[in-house]
């Protein structure tokens, strides 16, 4: 199905009605298998012990936190360049989900760091740039909530999202630079080239399941947003009719 076919909100709602249950069931199934593997099959890491099981949430949520920004960037391009009518719906729907996953990534990272590093938070490069990403998400959500007209809010948010997209690699680079300046290798990096397949398989399954969950959530939030705009339009029409009558 071409993207342009979904430009019609009614057609999108029909698509969403079909796609949301599929993605939801897929997510539930994959996550269930992933959780089973993570707790009952996957071995403990020889260094991290059982805390490696936190990473089965941490890594997928980190992945989604970033992927969601990519989705928002593409939607922002859709708003400003192609003027796709659903692009700003997609932007708005994605922001809270991305923020939630980024927050989850930070929380699980802190809970992993406490037993492993002895502290909930270090100003490690990755943690710091994830925190900045969360700040950007929250700023975008605040922007969406401030402007009442969805069209104007969408274009403003699109500009900010794109500026953020240009900036995030720069922020990442500068935080890396800053971090090596202040903290020479005090932190054990997880992973490296060799993650054993007994750990990698559940991780991948969890990641794919979480992505399916994201798709289901995003489509549902988009559907809600379309309905919200219909309600808004009907209210305005009703108010206008009331004013002229």
């Amino acid at each position: 199905m071409a993207l342009i076919d979904l430009a019609n909100p009614t057609r999108f709602l029909a698509f969403a009605r079909a796609a949301i249950p599929i993605a939801g069931v897929l997510a539930a199934g994959l996550l269930a298998v992933g959780i089973y593997l993570a707790f009952f099959v996957a071995p403990e890491d020889y260094q991290q012990g059982a805390t490696v099981r936190i990473l089965y949430i941490h890594v997928p949520s980190a992945w989604l936190g970033m992927a969601c920004y990519v989705v928002m960037t593409l939607s922002a391009l859709g708003t400003l360049v192609w003027k796709h009518p659903l692009a700003d719906v997609s932007q708005k729907a994605a922001a809270p989900i991305g923020a939630a996953f980024t927050l989850l990534c930070l929380v699980t990272g802190a809970l992993w760091g406490r037993p492993m590093w002895g502290t909930y938070w270090v100003w490690d490069a990755r943690l710091t740039s994830t925190l900045v990403l969360l700040l950007i998400y929250l700023g975008l959500i605040a922007l969406w909530r401030t402007v009442e007209d969805p069209g104007r809010a969408g274009r403003a948010a699109a500009v900010l999202t794109l500026v953020g997209a240009v900036n995030i690699p720069i922020i990442k680079f500068s935080v890396d630079w800053w971090n090596t300046l202040h903290q020479p290798t005090s932190v054990i990096r997880l992973g490296g080239p060799t993650i054993h397949s007994s750990i990698l398989t559940p991780l991948l399954i969890m990641a794919i399941g979480a992505t399916a969950l994201f798709v289901a959530l995003h489509l549902s939030a988009m559907r809600n947003e379309i309905l919200r705009r219909r309600v808004r339009t009907l209210r305005i029409l009703a108010a206008q009719r009331g004013a002229t009558a």
């Binding site: 707790f39 012990g49 059982a50 805390t51 099981r53 936190i54 949430i57 989850l104 809970l111 406490r114």
Partner: peptide, 25 residues
């Protein structure tokens, strides 16, 4: 449930947070 070792609380908290965020969404 399997043995989660000395850091069971942190693992449970992390998964609880994940459940909370997912269910919340």
């Amino acid at each position: 449930m399997i043995d989660l070792g000395p850091h069971a609380l942190f693992i449970q908290l992390a998964w609880a947070a994940a459940g909370l965020v997912t269910l919340g969404l």
